[in-house]
Amino acid sequence: MTSIASHHIAVLSREAVEMLRPRHGGIYVDATFGAGGYSRAILDIAGTRVIGIDRDRAAIAGGFGLVDRSSGRLTLVEDRFSNLAEICAAEGLDAVDGVVMDVGVSSMQLDQAERGFSFRLGGPLDMRMGRDGPTAAEVVAKASERDLADIIYIFGEERHARGVARAIVAARKQAPITTTQGLAAIVARVVHAKPHEIHPATRTFQALRIFVNQELDELHRALSAAERVLKPGGRLVVVSFHSLEDRIVKNFLSQRGKAAAGSRHLPEVAQAAPSFNILTRRPVTPGDTEISANPRARSAKLRAAERTAAPAHPAGALPAWPVLADVMRGG
């Protein structure tokens, strides 16, 4: 299979690898392999080893050439990045020296019409990063009007979410909504954007994509998994592309980067020691040159932290937002 790397530009690649600080003999997890941009840069350091993870089979297949060229230093695993701790254990690794994540949909997924991620390209309303679970068309067909409104408002931050949900329910009574352009046309009848603004369907498509792939739940779990597998001095580097993702990363590192607040009423409760030293008090963002070369980089933010010797904190409960399984069974 022809490599797909040429269709994807790794965002903040130089900055991410500098923060990761790969060294000879180090073992690193590229938790969102994609086209292998970060993995390739890490493998350029002699003696490094990389575990590359991606739930997208096309991304894994596209990386076979890099596996061959790495002389056994790259292992690719088709799986969700929330399972990185279990993947490392299966590879016989108790701890690793670094984890890098590039969160969200990739350029190559957006540019493949048949994947159904983009309203600008005609295609089936799919949006799945992997091969499992319901498609966006199935969610649109099955979810209640209330659930659709919640999904679009929470994950898309769309202020017209109720109107969009109402329009979807009305349209699906007339005919199934099965294509990207069909859904985009329905949304555009409710959301009216000015010429200089984003396309009216942008936030609705973002919401459905995040929901179908459970992206924010995956990110919560992946961050906790990285905390568990990083050795003291190991580094976590995360590149995100919109405010919901960045907020999760920022809050996670903030909670782990300082001791938990004690209580004068409960002095016997021990405070959890910080499990990370934060390396980026403010996120690193792309420069004008990178944005000019790759406009999709404009919203990217990089945050990084170094693991301390303190025990990993207990994983927190996931936020109370719509759950895919509940919505699909009408719960």
Results as ranks from 00 to 15, higher is better:
residue 195 P to H: 06
residue 198 I to F: 15
residue 213 N to D: 07
residue 208 L to G: 00
residue 204 T to H: 04
residue 200 P to I: 01
residue 212 V to P: 12
residue 210 I to Y: 12
residue 222 A to I: 01
residue 206 Q to W: 14
residue 194 K to H: 12
residue 222 A to S: 06
residue 204 T to Y: 07
residue 219 L to S: 01
residue 220 H to D: 07
residue 218 E to L: 10
residue 198 I to E: 14
residue 214 Q to W: 14
residue 194 K to Q: 13
residue 197 E to I: 05
residue 220 H to F: 14
residue 208 L to C: 01
residue 211 F to T: 04
residue 194 K to E: 12
residue 207 A to S: 01
residue 216 L to R: 08
residue 217 D to K: 02
residue 212 V to S: 07
residue 196 H to C: 11
residue 217 D to V: 07
residue 219 L to K: 03
residue 221 R to Q: 13
residue 192 H to A: 08
residue 199 H to I: 07
residue 191 V to Y: 15
residue 191 V to I: 13
residue 207 A to N: 08
residue 218 E to F: 09
residue 208 L to P: 04
residue 197 E to N: 06
residue 205 F to T: 02
residue 220 H to T: 02
residue 204 T to A: 01
residue 198 I to R: 15
residue 219 L to A: 05
residue 210 I to C: 06
residue 202 T to Q: 09
residue 195 P to G: 04
residue 209 R to P: 06
residue 205 F to P: 04
residue 204 T to P: 10
residue 203 R to G: 06
residue 194 K to Y: 13
residue 211 F to I: 02
residue 193 A to T: 14
residue 219 L to E: 00
residue 220 H to C: 06
residue 219 L to R: 00
residue 205 F to I: 03
residue 222 A to D: 01
residue 217 D to A: 10
residue 214 Q to D: 11
residue 199 H to R: 09
residue 220 H to Y: 15
residue 222 A to L: 05
residue 199 H to W: 13
residue 203 R to K: 12
residue 193 A to R: 14
residue 214 Q to N: 09
residue 203 R to C: 11
residue 214 Q to I: 08
residue 191 V to S: 10
residue 199 H to Y: 12
residue 202 T to S: 09
residue 193 A to H: 15
residue 191 V to G: 13
residue 198 I to L: 15
residue 211 F to M: 03
residue 212 V to C: 08
residue 194 K to M: 12
residue 201 A to Q: 04
residue 208 L to E: 02
residue 206 Q to L: 10
residue 212 V to W: 13
residue 200 P to Q: 05
residue 214 Q to L: 10
residue 202 T to H: 13
residue 199 H to N: 07
residue 205 F to D: 00
residue 214 Q to C: 10
residue 209 R to D: 03
residue 218 E to W: 09
residue 210 I to D: 03
residue 217 D to L: 09
residue 209 R to C: 02
residue 193 A to N: 15
residue 211 F to N: 00
residue 204 T to I: 04
residue 220 H to L: 06
residue 192 H to T: 11
residue 215 E to R: 04
residue 193 A to Y: 15
residue 206 Q to A: 05
residue 200 P to L: 04
residue 194 K to A: 10
residue 213 N to E: 09
residue 196 H to R: 05
residue 203 R to E: 11
residue 215 E to P: 10
residue 220 H to M: 12
residue 218 E to Q: 06
residue 217 D to I: 07
residue 196 H to S: 07
residue 201 A to H: 02
residue 211 F to P: 05
residue 200 P to Y: 04
residue 222 A to R: 07
residue 212 V to T: 04
residue 220 H to W: 14
residue 194 K to R: 12
residue 200 P to K: 03
residue 207 A to K: 03
residue 201 A to E: 02
residue 206 Q to N: 07
residue 194 K to C: 11
residue 200 P to T: 01
residue 222 A to Q: 05
residue 195 P to V: 03
residue 221 R to H: 13
residue 221 R to D: 11
residue 218 E to A: 03
residue 221 R to E: 11
residue 201 A to W: 09
residue 220 H to E: 08
residue 211 F to Y: 08
residue 213 N to K: 03
residue 206 Q to M: 10
residue 208 L to V: 01
residue 208 L to R: 00
residue 212 V to F: 12
residue 214 Q to H: 11
residue 194 K to P: 14
residue 217 D to H: 08
